[in-house]
Write a protein that binds this DNA or RNA. Structure first.
Lengths: 130, 130
DNA sequence: ACACCTGTATTAGTGTTGTAGTACACACGG
DNA sequence: CCGTGTGTACTACAACACTAATACAGGTGT
């Protein structure tokens, strides 16, 4: 199964597209803790990009505590997901929610529309999780 | 009243901090359609940055239809806010909501926490609006 | 021990971003 | 008409981002 696809002309940097997709699949449950990821070289080959680009994506993900890399073995999604202290998590959530709220208001959306969009996004993640 | 404050060492570009604050105040109702903004030079002076930096922020905001600039007169928030077609707005909201959902899951938040954070963010905007 | 897998480090090139400086052009008010 | 406000256009430059190329080093399995 092909887990990743990239668009080199999308304007978004390749390494970031990789990161986003790992995060997405993790949030959706397509990737589970402990699971092995494609090796740097393998993924670089199938996506036709330089290994250093994948290495950068994986390196950042490791720095964020999302995945774990072992020489000679490969890359794996971290066994126990990075758990934030509740307070710090609350603050982070507020930052993210503020951003959504402001940008949504910007396009003229009201509270109901915004909540509905969030509900749909959460529902889709939960559906894939099953 | 001082409407803007910036942190040159935050890592986030100054012009983007300006943009975010204009958008925020607009969403919160602190800035209302038609209202005049501080001039490029004036704001540049009070924030101690180069006028071109403010010009860039204002320029982008104008390109996005948020504000309107007139030579010799000044900058004003656009009279009628940019209204998107419903479909396009729905799609945009989903993109924003997806991002929030994925990043929130990343820090281990569950649906209830996420919804609560959004409710708080919306409540705060509505409160200032009054 | 060896071959082959893995990630790591270093260097470099190319483009873009962010800010600054400076000079220009239009609009208003005396 | 002229001075002073305004936004605009241009160049320059340092910093960073992104990707690539290449060589290195540790782990695994036979």
């Amino acid at each position: 199964m092909l887990l990743f696809t990239i668009n080199p002309h999308s304007g978004m940097p390749v390494y970031r597209q990789i990161m986003d997709q790992v995060r997405y699949h993790l949030a959706a449950g397509t990737l589970v803790p402990g699971q092995q990821l494609p090796s740097i070289r393998e993924l670089a080959h199938t996506l036709a990009v330089n290994p250093a680009t994948i290495a950068k994506a994986y390196g950042e993900l490791e720095h964020d505590g999302v995945i774990e890399m072992q020489r000679g073995r490969g890359a794996f999604v971290h066994a126990q997901p990075p758990s934030m202290p509740r307070d710090q998590r609350r603050q982070r959530l507020r930052t993210l929610a503020d951003r959504l709220a402001v940008e949504a208001r910007q396009v003229g959306a009201d509270d109901t529309e915004i909540r509905a969009a969030l509900d749909q996004a959460l529902a889709q993640l939960n559906r894939k999780r099953s």
